[in-house]
Nucleic acid binder design. Sequence first.
DNA 1: TAGATTGTTAATCGATTAACAATC
DNA 2: TAGATTGTTAATCGATTAACAATC
Lengths: 202, 202
Amino acid sequence: MTVRRLSVYTRCLLQLEEDGVKTVSSHDLAERFNLNSAQVRKDLAYFGEFGVRGIGYYVAGLKAELQRILGLDREWPVALIGFGNLGSALFHYKGLGRQGFRIAVIFDDDPAKTNREANGVPIFATRDLAREVKARGVQIAIVAVPAEAAQSVADQLVAAGIKAVLNFAPTRIRLPRDVRLKDVDLSIELETLSFYLAKGSR
Amino acid sequence: MTVRRLSVYTRCLLQLEEDGVKTVSSHDLAERFNLNSAQVRKDLAYFGEFGVRGIGYYVAGLKAELQRILGLDREWPVALIGFGNLGSALFHYKGLGRQGFRIAVIFDDDPAKTNREANGVPIFATRDLAREVKARGVQIAIVAVPAEAAQSVADQLVAAGIKAVLNFAPTRIRLPRDVRLKDVDLSIELETLSFYLAKGSR
DNA sequence: TAGATTGTTAATCGATTAACAATC
DNA sequence: TAGATTGTTAATCGATTAACAATC
């Protein structure tokens, strides 16, 4: 929960830095996101004393601290599994690269797509997954395969030593407890919206 | 928060019904999702008395109730704005249709894509947005345009009477308070993952 | 010094869980 | 009736907010 907020703060600090703002108070930050200033201070203080009493937080310094905490002070090679519609969309999506996530290798089972490159990124058959993931020291994988294939892909990822999975397949996948899993489920997002619309007309 | 859980329960009930299970207890449901059975009962009781003491919940009946509460007892026409990589991926995504969401109209500004149909769904130029959205009584929109175009699209959607927006553009958009907004931000999802990986090695 | 703002403690609030009478 | 399970109240827990001494 706090981690999500750290991400949001970081993005805001990037913007402030661009705008040439040197310092920012917890009140300023809180206002931007409808949060309480005590909440902001507590979030930040949890990781260390980053502020200066009477002044606030130095934008550049705080940004660097938060990026370090979020692991954004380095580049993360990412494996993309599934290069269909969704996979290509994610691959071309600009948002990812900005914070240091770099798709380093792609896997797909369609022979027409494999053994070539997309913008310099090699595309392999899924059978090569373990070899290529290990060779590149990839720890994060994005799963964008059909639901039927998701669990099998997940098992192979675990066997290859992957430590975190962002899952777009519309199905539950089971992973060992020490592998982080994040599901992106479009239906759930839409259902929260339709709930409120339906409620309005009840 | 509860709404998300209702979605999850509903999906589980669909599965149970397929499997021929007639009744389910709060304990059964709780176990499946690492929740507390009191939590499940409270979530459900909030909307009415759906259970039977000594028995549990009738799967078919509870499913129908939850679908009604979530607004899934009807079809929702959805407008998709942006038919690039991401837009096409979403369009072909099987998950959406299953719960009654149907992409009824697509908008894009590339003349090569407009004034034709994709699987029977018409594609219009964005300038026709208000007209076509109103004609179809569409209340939900999925925004899959580049960040630069997102706010302008959002404004047009509001003007056309849209009541809920699922935003994939990697930027904040501002909407009137009575329009529901849900952001799907890939970077934030990845950052929560890299946070835990970085923490592990700290 | 006076004003501003932090970090942190104590108070509040809301959400989760335990417990149990009601009842199928 | 005995066993099971609900709906709900009371207890617990955790997260948010208010307040303020510390201090720039």
